[in-house]
């Protein structure tokens, strides 16, 4: 569904991504993992059209979307859910959700989908007329995810949905992502929570310094000692080994 070939991109003259190739097939959950400053968010911004493509190509739904305008990309059904802090705090919950449906004009269906989102996230229904700035971290994450669903996407790209949330809330969020994928929406999940993401996804890419370091099926990666050492720092002795190296 999403095909990225040898993508180079960055900010101004500063190149962050150095030749990323990535494939997401229809109906799957694919995880993109990596630490801070490895280029995960840059990649999402580039796919969404917020940053220019320097080299390489992006194809979505069999159409070339390299350097397309962001609002055209949204209209084609590829929707990015930004990190949780980026709701509109001065708008009510319902206004935020309606904003997600901005590209659509089918009023009856929008209303139906709004009810769908509310039954998905009942908390949001209780808070529908409150300013989204008053929501808790987990609720805001539900709000931005719901807002993404309001666009009726073919594919959702989620940017660190578990960031800065309590473990119990994280479980809930991941359960929701699974439910969303069951409705037929393809998902690209960008995460730092490696274990959870690997449990959920069928395939995963690990990004480091702007290129894909490792890729493979989740069940293979999850038992890979190299992954364990890379992300968890291994044992204490391993860590000291790393320090001396």
């Amino acid at each position: 569904m999403l095909k990225i070939k040898e993508l180079h991109a960055g900010y101004g003259r500063l190149k962050i991504l150095r030749g990323i190739s990535l494939d997401v097939s229809q109906g799957t959950i694919v995880a993109l993992l990596g630490g801070n400053g490895t280029g995960k968010s840059t990649l999402l911004k580039t796919i969404s059209g917020l940053l220019p493509v320097m080299d390489g190509s992006i194809e979505f739904d069999e159409k070339d979307i390299t350097n397309s305008k962001p609002h055209h990309i949204v209209r084609s059904g590829l929707v990015q859910v930004t990190q949780s802090k980026e709701a509109y705090p001065a708008m009510t919950v319902e206004e935020n959700l309606m904003l997600g449906a901005f590209t659509r004009s089918d009023k009856a269906e929008i209303k139906y989908d709004l009810e769908g989102v509310y039954s998905f996230f009942p908390v949001l229904k209780d808070r529908r007329n409150m300013l989204s700035g008053t929501l808790s971290g987990g609720e805001v994450q539900m709000l931005v995810t719901g807002r993404g669903l309001m666009a009726k996407p073919k594919m959702l790209m989620l940017d660190e949905p578990s960031a800065a949330l309590a473990p119990k809330v994280v479980l809930e969020i991941f359960a929701n992502i699974y439910k969303i994928s069951q409705t037929g929406v393809t998902i690209l999940l960008v995460e730092q929570n490696v274990r959870m993401a690997l449990l959920l996804a069928q395939y995963a890419y690990i990004i480091r310094d702007g290129h894909i370091m490792i890729e493979g099926k989740s069940e293979e990666l999850i038992n890979d000692p190299a992954i364990k050492e890379f992300f968890l720092g291994g044992t204490v002795t391993d860590t000291s080994k790393g320090l001396n190296a």
Partner: peptide, 20 residues
């Protein structure tokens, strides 16, 4: 609503499919 969205944050407004 789009005007308010653009006023607050243009990047997010783009991601909502608004022609900023």
């Amino acid at each position: 609503l789009a005007v308010r969205a653009v006023a607050h944050n243009k990047d997010i407004a783009y991601l909502m499919g608004i022609n900023v």
